[in-house]
Design a protein around this nucleic acid. Structure first.
Lengths: 218, 218, 218, 218
DNA sequence: CATGAATGAGATTTCATTCAT
DNA sequence: AATGAATGAAATCTCATTCAT
């Protein structure tokens, strides 16, 4: 298959490519069918390699699943690192952060499904993964600083907790993707559709800002 | 096993009880392990009946799953029907509705898992279920009327859509239960815990009210 | 396959017969090829049932192996129980016991192979088997009483220990069967052959008696 | 990895060392897990070389196993050659031979396991090995001469056969090591333990001498 | 209504061996 | 002499489902 003159470096790159291809397909299959529903056979068939290679590289279905999770989380975190909103005024910073989170969920739908699946399983896999446990979540620090600045400037009144604000924003963005199908059936609206994007994107920003301004206080 | 003299009525009641027991166990097992991960054998073992009975009553694993979904949705909708917030002032009506939705999600955790699972499968089962398609969602009507009243009274400024408001509230409540495990691992906080309940319950009401008052507008 | 009128009792007996047939074939295959070398597929093929049934009844290859071991040990012990040598004079009692042990090993060759195999695996399976741990070994008590009687009568001089005497006799009988093949290749004699039986049977009795009479003392 | 300037002699020595290391590890692994149970992968992993080298040097798993057997037999026979008991009086000669055989088994436990394993497989490998077929067994000649001398001196009365005497002694020594594990579980005594050594070593000598003196004759 | 036995199809996993350089 | 990647064949095991009574 390979040219006879292929140097070791290329073989190495083949190995990496093979591994990456397996991971990519596996992520899609696990996202589509759940952990138990995904088939190693099927993953192999969608790859240029064989089932045997999956075991060569990953050892077991579970380890493949964990590797897919780890890769997905790592990629997603890498994007998060690039967010820079701290030069903005607090209100704009929060709004922008919410909108970036929204875009982010919009763009990583398989990842969201993996997270749903992982929650079905009580997060038992990411709990055990040393890679994921130490992955860090810089977003909490960012929100903390925005909240402080906002309170100092008088923009924010609500005694808000960074983790809760993050949860509020994530919930909105996550739900829109994760629950799109049942929501569509029950309410007849495709919330994950392209044409809803702009309106819902604006909405999550307004929601976060309105809440922090304290407008909902009893 | 049953006495030969058992009257037909009692046998019927036994049958109903058996069916109900199977459904209950099945709901738990599907919620715990996903559709593919749940085992017919295991469900039977957790029941006082046998595997054969599951097939006798439900025909197949898939039909059992659909029956579990239908039962869960029907029960949940039945509770929703009892909500009466329309005699309240708009702000209080929305706040109360949000809090009741919160309580509701808090109390039906297996149902939430089933919904997550069903979304993994693109809602293919509820889509096909005639029972679920006609189940109706009175909550949208309720919210619509509150929004109208709120706009009339000047309390609400935001050009809000009932479905979006419902989504915003549901997202918060759903996420708290559905994603509790991964959230706990990544942020070290158990958002589904008893001691977080009151704070988060207040938060969802404030969020909805603040948003509708238009405080987040740019 | 079965006559339509087959009552439950016969079905039950079929189940027992199926189980017994699997065990019998499994014993032979494990004895022949070792634990890892035996094939579940092959065992199934040599049976009137299917591979699936092996898992239905025994759960795993290892549990089948343990069941085979337990059955073999239980059968062998059952035969031992029937030995009655205590009405004989001490010398004849020991000689007879040695000869019966000899016959016994001669007649249970698969069992001996299973024991060899189990020792390769450091007895890890019988160690864990509650059935085997409590199986008891009446032979030690029998030997103890013979030794006491022999010492009282003055026939036996050696300060012998029942367990060691049992080991000495067993070693001879076991080796003859277990090591017949390598011994045959290296020394050109088939010690397990029919024509060697009588001489070696007499030999083990003489050996035990001679030892206990103290004739080998320095 | 090797310096380009390495002379041929050293490379050869490296090769020998590699071969020897593979053999050593293979012997241990085959002894521990049986022929089918041993893993080529595992043997390679326990070596400083790779799996490929095993095939380079030995061709196949079976040939590696045969090589391990041949090496073990050859080493063991080499030790036997050094035994010199013919200058002793017959009784002492036999006693000493028995005790040396005992020591010998005590010191070569992996070898004993390989012999057990080889018997499970009906000695098919050593049967085919030209190296082992011609290895010779000087011990039979030694025993023959002792028996003749003993009968001439009147010490030995039993019409003994050298091969049988060798078998009797070997059985005792072999059993103590080979069956130590099942024996331990069933009788609660560790016959292969250090603290049993002296007593059992004396016992095998006494047993052989007593038998040959004819004290067990009916 | 009820039940233990049975099963076919397919799932995951393993392992000795070879390829390409 | 040495190596990491690759592989086909076969192994163990699982699972929804049905049979026979």
């Amino acid at each position: 298959m390979q040219p006879a003159t292929q140097p070791a470096g290329e073989r190495q790159r083949d190995a990496d490519r093979t591994r990456a291809e397996i991971l990519e397909v596996a992520t899609r299959e696990f996202a589509r069918r759940g952990y138990a529903g995904a088939r190693v056979d099927e993953i192999a068939a969608l790859t240029r390699t064989t089932k045997r290679m999956i075991y060569y590289y990953f050892g077991s279905k579970e380890q493949l699943y964990i590797a897919a999770l780890e890769t997905a989380y790592t990629e997603v975190r890498a994007v998060e690192q690039t967010v820079d909103v701290e030069h903005l005024a607090p209100v704009e910073a929060i709004r922008t952060l919410a909108e970036l989170t929204f875009d982010h969920h919009d763009a990583h739908r398989d990842f969201i499904k993996l997270v749903s699946i992982e929650n079905i399983h009580h997060a038992e896999h990411i709990r055990k993964s040393p890679v994921l446990a130490t992955l860090g979540t810089p977003v909490i620090g960012i929100i903390s600083r925005i909240l402080e600045a906002g309170r100092a400037s008088g923009d924010f009144v609500t005694e808000a907790d960074a983790i809760d604000v993050h949860m509020m924003i994530s919930a909105f963005c996550f739900f829109r993707i994760a629950n799109q199908h049942t929501f569509g059936v029950l309410f007849g609206r495709d919330i994950a559709a392209e044409e809803e994007r702009a309106r819902l994107r604006a909405m999550v920003g307004e929601m976060a800002v309105a809440y922090l301004r304290g407008a909902g206080a009893p």
